[in-house]
Design a protein around this nucleic acid. Sequence first.
DNA 1: AGACTGACTCCGG
DNA 2: CCCGGAGCCAGTC
Length: 133
Amino acid sequence: MARSEEAEAWANAVYSAIQEIPPGRVTTYAHIALLLGEPQRPRQVGVCLKSLPDPESGLEFNSSTVPWQRVINAQGKISHRGPGSAERQAEALREEGVEITTGSLNEYHISFSRYGWFPKKLPSEEGGNSDDE
DNA sequence: AGACTGACTCCGG
DNA sequence: CCCGGAGCCAGTC
């Protein structure tokens, strides 16, 4: 726990931003950080996802309400962490219609030109536009 | 309390 | 193209 108020505020903002990503689209940790006005902290975005609560926590933001699978790294690949986690993420994305190619290193690659979602501002802040590229 | 780690990136050699 | 260093900073040991 050890979550300070600002840390929680940050996590809260990260989760909200991720919820803006339309189904079938993906973006990067860096872009989420950029949208939040903290372009130098893509890593902290990952930290937030790592601590994303379980659905049973009862919290507003959890692994069911936050489409964490739509966040990948700047190389257009799914970051590997725990065993099987990358596979679950790939599966979740494929269910949304995202095509994923696998490299020689069993890495999952996603085409940003086809599925990338990189708005300059959060759509909810613009009050209109919802997606573009 | 101090050191290490990591769901990241960028940049230079 | 591969590798290392630097910046970031919350969580973990």
